[in-house]
Amino acid sequence: MSTETTPANSGTTGERPIGPDNPAPVIEPPRTRTGRSPRSTRTNFELHGWLFMRLSGILLVFLVLGHLLIQLVLDGGVSKVSFAFVAGRWASPFWQVWDLLMLWLAMLHGANGLRTIINDYAQRDNTRFWLKMLLYTATVFTILLGTLVIFTFDPNIR
């Protein structure tokens, strides 16, 4: 990597070559935080997001693969899924907590993933902003709806 960088002023006539007696000017790394850093880059949000993706990802491997195994593979696969089946499972706090945890972790994991993708590919500031607002709205709505459904589920609705 270092072999590819060339000082901007090398080769120009009349300049002393860069060397031990004439060190190159120090350029601050772009990620150094100074008083002039924008507010959004002064926190460790991205570090925590990066860590969250890995930790939630490991948990989701077990939660989601377990969920797929129960819903799609064991005991007749998808054919057995019905209101009665859901009622039977949510009668147990264990599966309620399982589904609640899976809902929150999967939604936040997916939302942060899509946020990264929007930041990568949407080039206009306006487009990026509105795509992320749409993403956050849909995410909050879906998390709240799912949480409400798990907590207010009524097996005797009819």
Binding site: F83, V86, A87, L103, T142, L145, G146, L148, V149, T152, F153, D154, I157, R158
Partner: peptide, 10 residues
């Protein structure tokens, strides 16, 4: 999540 929410409908 939307299809599962239908358990709150009927």
């Amino acid at each position: 999540v939307l299809d599962t929410a239908l358990v709150r409908v009927s």
